[in-house]
């Protein structure tokens, strides 16, 4: 049982999930990601597309304990057990919530401020369609 994001609704966000296309406010120039109807900073609705680099730093994180994941991620937990989720502060400014990947889900190995970059991974499956999107992996040696 899963919270429902339809296939068309998901498809509409492919630009964000695969290519990190953000909305830059034409009025105050801050970058909104994920896209919003109105700018987070000034409320303007006038945007232009910009592509993000996918690089950023861990702002905060957690390790989702066994058996506690949202039901959409049961498959993931069956395979990996605990997994790490973080808020990433992207170098262009916006923050995103994403899983950490290609690293141990160990609080002693993950640090606030650590550099990470976006990679495309399988997120979850709904209506027999695998939903892909970004996760972040540590950049080796800073």
């Amino acid at each position: 049982m899963t919270s429902y994001v339809s296939i068309p609704q998901y498809s509409n966000t492919i630009d964000q999930r695969y290519r990190l296309i953000a909305k830059k406010c034409k009025s105050c120039e801050i970058i909104n990601f994920p896209p919003r109807q109105t700018c987070l900073e000034c409320g303007s609705a006038d945007f232009q597309n910009v592509k993000l680099s996918g690089r950023g730093r861990i702002y905060t994180f957690t390790i989702i304990g066994r058996g506690g994941a949202p039901t959409e991620f049961d498959d993931l937990q069956n395979m990996t057990g605990e997994y790490a989720v973080a808020i990433i502060e992207l170098e262009e400014g916006p923050k995103v919530v994403a899983q950490l990947t290609d690293c141990h889900s160990n609080p002693n190995e993950i640090k606030i401020g650590m550099e990470v970059k976006a990679v495309i991974r399988r997120l979850y499956e709904q209506e027999r369609i695998i939903r892909y999107g970004y996760k972040f992996k540590p950049i080796a040696d800073g």
Partner: peptide, 27 residues
């Protein structure tokens, strides 16, 4: 588990894999 944790952002927050304990844990 399905029902709880939909009182925040679903599309970009929960469906990144967070539950509510996770959100407060990050805070």
């Amino acid at each position: 588990r399905y029902w709880l944790g939909v009182s925040g952002d679903v599309e970009w927050e929960r469906l990144a894999g967070t539950n509510f304990p996770g959100v407060y844990a990050m805070m």
